[in-house]
Design a protein around this nucleic acid. Structure first.
Lengths: 219, 219
DNA sequence: AGAATAGTGTCTGTCAGACAGTATCGC
DNA sequence: GCGATACTGTCTGACAGACACTATTCT
């Protein structure tokens, strides 16, 4: 059966940093057909009567999975065609979002069988539709930006140490970074504000930083 | 009046190099309402019954404006919302294409009042809808890639000199490049094949090159 | 020879990578 | 002092920018 109008949906790759485990992406287990039981990126259908535009649609979908408005939401690309979804010709617009480290508990379940934070490099689940490709595309965009020295501050809590920021970048890139090189670059960055506070530990305390007002992860 | 389904259209920023004039983009003067008489990027509506996916739709639209299949066609981003087109909620998916220097004559007119190759940096025409923003977005993507040392070989004729390639990059970036620096990088590039032919002029002849088989402008 | 364009050699500053070193905390 | 982590100094090699230099053609 052929359709005259394409279905339009938005999917979102929501990234977070899992302490000690690295970069994680939110996957949901589909509770309904088609592809029931397969895992997918959280997503939903565009509602033109409700959504101002596609990004607004993505934010609305986000609010049904996560109870907060995320500071960074950005389009990756589109996926389209007659066969990518068994329900017929469809357009999927992919966004990615960065979930701050201190808001991880805000995730709620909504009409799905299960929720999981997976390693985006090896999800380990059978993915629905073309979501495996979508995941790869989102991860690529994120990595490219960090590779080009954009600071993923939206993944960090309000106040953080430079070491924690380095761990975040390493988790995204999947390789270790040199501490001295990393800090040398940050010295001249206008995106970081050094605080007069220190994080006590069992060792020498580390200075705390926060993102400069108005900071965005945009290119 | 509100619509339940969004209109889906594709628009294409077609770039070429105009000898001596620099980078040019194809604009068409709208022959029909809405915004009749305003200038726009060539585009058209998605036809799910015909198009395999959005890129195929863009290629189909391209074939009605230009009589060839272009080697490089790539998605930029989407524009969407209730107000960007007076006909109601719509999604515009923007692509950009690179037209080889030896196929410029292939452009035909199709249901438009006029066609013009404009300077993308200052189009000089009153643009329809959000096409002014679209043009800016496409130009940005093209510049970013060339800035990151991607070679815009799809804009060149089959065989070309290194100086001609440098002029093309300069036209895209809008600034002069150093000849020695430019050629030093190209020396190690696997994307260029040096030919045993030379282009005679009124001066010392320049060696001709062509793109390596399988070359693409992809990231 | 001179004009014009093709193509190269080389100096310098900047920056990334590597790695060793110093500083400051708890015990 | 010792372990652990924070933070810095410095050497080196790669590379970009700048610019002068050589090479080859035509007139």
């Amino acid at each position: 059966m052929r359709k005259l109008y394409p279905t339009v949906m938005v999917d979102i790759a929501i990234f977070r940093i899992d302490e000690g485990e690295g970069l994680r992406i939110l996957l949901v287990k589909r509770a309904n057909a088609p592809q029931k039981g397969f895992w997918a990126l959280p997503g939903g259908f565009l509602k033109p009567l409700v959504d101002a535009n596609l990004e607004a649609a993505a934010r609305r979908v986000l609010r049904t999975k996560v109870s907060v408005d995320l500071p960074h939401l950005e389009e990756v690309c589109t996926f389209s065609g007659r066969d990518r979804d068994p329900r017929g010709w469809s357009i999927g617009v992919l966004f990615y979002a960065l979930l701050p480290g201190d808001q991880v508990e805000a995730v709620i379940k909504d009409k799905v069988d299960a929720v999981e934070w997976s390693d985006p490099a090896k999800p380990g689940h059978r993915m629905a539709f073309d979501h495996s490709m979508q995941l790869g595309a989102a991860l690529n965009v994120l990595r490219q930006k960090v590779e080009r020295h954009a600071l993923p501050l939206h993944l960090m809590p309000d106040r953080f140490t430079l070491t924690a920021l380095q761990r975040t970048c390493e988790a995204i890139l999947g390789r270790p970074l040199d501490k001295a090189v990393f800090r040398r670059r940050l010295k001249e960055s206008l995106d970081l504000i050094a605080l007069e506070e220190y994080e006590g530990g069992r060792q020498r305390p580390a200075q705390l930083y926060r993102a400069a007002p108005g900071f965005t992860f945009m290119a």
